[in-house]
Design a protein around this nucleic acid. Structure first.
Lengths: 189, 189
DNA sequence: TTGATTTTGTGACTTTCGTCAAATGAAAAG
DNA sequence: CTTTTCATTTGACGAAAGTCACAAAATCAA
């Protein structure tokens, strides 16, 4: 059942059977219905998630009451509400299922134990974070250097799954555009 | 001479004398004149830096030939051109001194040795990355949810040192605004 | 200090985005 | 199948950003 996860780990850093058994014994499975929340604003994030099936988004409500999406997740993605979990502070963000989804869950206490127990996980954790940071940086480059239209084209060319599976209003806030403008941009193309 | 660096480490994760000696023996010092480059587009980043004095920026040239700043660094900041270093690929970005600056340099091979040698550094590396990721996420939230004017106000309130020390044209590209518009926004306030 | 270079500010104009309101279309619920 | 709810599209309008060209100011180097 957890084979895809082992596979994903393996691609990042070869995992031994022993390390994998440690891991397998502590992860849990969660099923989410469409629109169900994995985390709500104000809660402290208690662990990390690995998306096995479906599609999730993180979002928050800004000062003007607008719903702003900040990330989308698909099959095999790692999710961590890192600020809340690391600093033990209430999350500013919500995590919500856009489709019926399946996630693996790892409690943060167990995660820390894992870090202490095996250098493998210490290293894996670092490598996953490196990837996360790189993609976060790439993403802010897009917001900074591209016009709204170029941003949409970028998504169209590089993340076609976003276009197919994510409601336009959420994609719009993710790209920093109003939904009406995104609708018009889309029409022009 | 390296005391401020030890201090910074200590704040993140208490460092033992032994671990510190290991570190101290391998770091190097670099002095940079104003406008001098620490890394140029196309080069592979060979290590990480810690800014001891002065001010640096990272930037790249986009498809339209425009100079886009992506980060600014001040005293006690860590710099890693993480994508280039991690993946061993040519950097898309330049790192340049905005003022006469002093940086500590740690070669990536030595860094990896350090990671293998002591779990302390493995953990410190992870913690530093966590911070980096958090600030990167905060930053893209600003670009996404705020109007150009609000972005400038945000910097004014939260990073007044940016206003004082960073040339307007670089701040403009960092905020995803043309320099003329930023000049006008500034006038209105 | 002076001249050259770089950076910032301004004006005029065009383009595009945001907003509000209303209409259409699509999906979920009964 | 129908109704209700939610998502997207469209129109009209005003505000703001982008661009180009040039002027003013600041900085740097001889």
């Amino acid at each position: 059942m957890y084979a895809p996860l082992k596979n994903t780990f393996d691609k990042i850093l070869k995992i031994t059977d022993e390390d994998w058994r440690d891991f397998e014994s502590i992860i849990e499975l969660k099923k989410l219905r469409k629109n169900e929340y994995l985390l709500r604003q104000g809660q402290i994030c208690q662990g990390i998630f690995f998306l096995s099936q479906g599609c999730l988004r993180t979002f928050y409500i800004n000062d003007n009451g607008k719903d702003i999406s900040t990330s989308f997740y698909f099959k095999d993605d790692f999710l961590r509400e890192i600020e809340s979990m690391t600093n033990n502070t209430p999350s500013r963000k919500n995590i919500q299922a856009l489709e019926e989804s399946t996630v693996f869950y790892l409690d943060k206490i167990k995660l820390v134990n894992l870090y202490e127990k095996s250098p493998f996980y210490q290293k894996l954790g670092r490598l996953i974070l490196e990837r996360l940071t790189i993609s976060e940086q790439k993403y802010s480059s897009i917001l900074r250097a591209y016009s709204p239209k170029e941003r949409y084209l970028f998504i169209l060319n590089n993340h076609p799954e976003f276009i197919e599976r994510i409601p336009l209003q959420h994609l719009a806030s993710y790209l920093g555009i109003s939904r009406e403008s995104l609708s018009r941009i889309r029409k022009r193309i």
